[in-house]
C-alpha cells in the first residue's frame, strides 16, 4: 500500500472514499472552519483502487453522530467512516442516505414555511439517490444545489 503521508491517529474518525474535490465540503458540514483544538488531516486527490482518485479526512478526538453521518451521505454517498479508539478501528460504518433527510438541509425556496420562525425541522424526501434528487416535504420544491444547502 502506498504511503498516505499521514500517521495513524489514536482516537477519532477517518472519513475515507470521499469523491475527490469534496473534502473541504465535508469539513464545512462538520463545522470545521479553522478554529480547532485537535488535529484535522485533509488528504486531497489520493489514488483510489475503486475510482481513480479520492479525498480522505481524519478528525482526531471526535466521533461523528448520526446526523453528521447523514449530512456526509448527501455529498459523499460512498464514504466509509472508521471510528478509531486507541489506534484500532473500533467501528466501521458506510454512510447511508435515509429516505427522509430530517433537519440537515435548508429549503432553497425563500417562501417555504420552513424558512420562517416555526418550530419544525426541515424534511426532504429522497426521490432518487443516483443522481441525488430531494424534494421538500412542505413546499414540494426540488432542491437543486444540495451540497450548498446543508445546515
Amino acid at each position: 500500500m502506498r504511503d498516505l503521508k499521514v500517521t495513524p491517529i489514536k482516537n477519532g474518525t477517518v472519513i475515507d472514499h470521499i469523491p475527490t474535490g469534496m473534502a473541504l465540503k465535508v469539513l464545512r458540514v462538520l463545522g470545521i472552519t479553522g478554529d480547532v483544538n485537535s488535529t484535522v488531516s485533509v488528504l486531497m486527490h489520493v489514488p483510489s483502487k475503486q475510482r481513480g482518485w479520492k479525498d480522505i479526512v481524519k478528525v482526531e478526538d471526535r466521533e461523528l453522530n448520526p446526523k453528521e453521518l447523514s449530512k456526509i451521505a448527501l455529498i459523499a454517498p460512498d464514504a466509509t467512516i472508521n471510528i478509531i479508539r486507541n489506534y484500532n478501528v473500533a467501528e466501521k460504518h458506510t454512510v447511508a442516505l435515509p429516505d427522509r433527510a430530517v433537519g440537515i438541509l435548508r429549503c432553497a425556496n425563500p417562501n417555504c414555511i420552513t424558512n420562517s420562525r416555526e418550530p419544525v425541522e426541515s424534511v426532504f424526501l429522497v426521490r432518487s439517490k443516483e443522481p441525488l434528487r430531494v424534494r421538500c416535504q412542505y413546499c414540494d420544491r426540488e432542491l437543486e444545489d444540495v451540497a450548498g444547502h446543508i445546515l
Binding site: 417562501n111 414555511i113 412542505y138
Partner: peptide
C-alpha cells in the same frame, strides 16, 4: 389560507 408554501402541512 396562507401566503407561504407548506403552511398547511405545518
Amino acid at each position: 389560507r396562507h401566503p407561504q408554501e407548506g403552511a398547511a402541512r405545518l
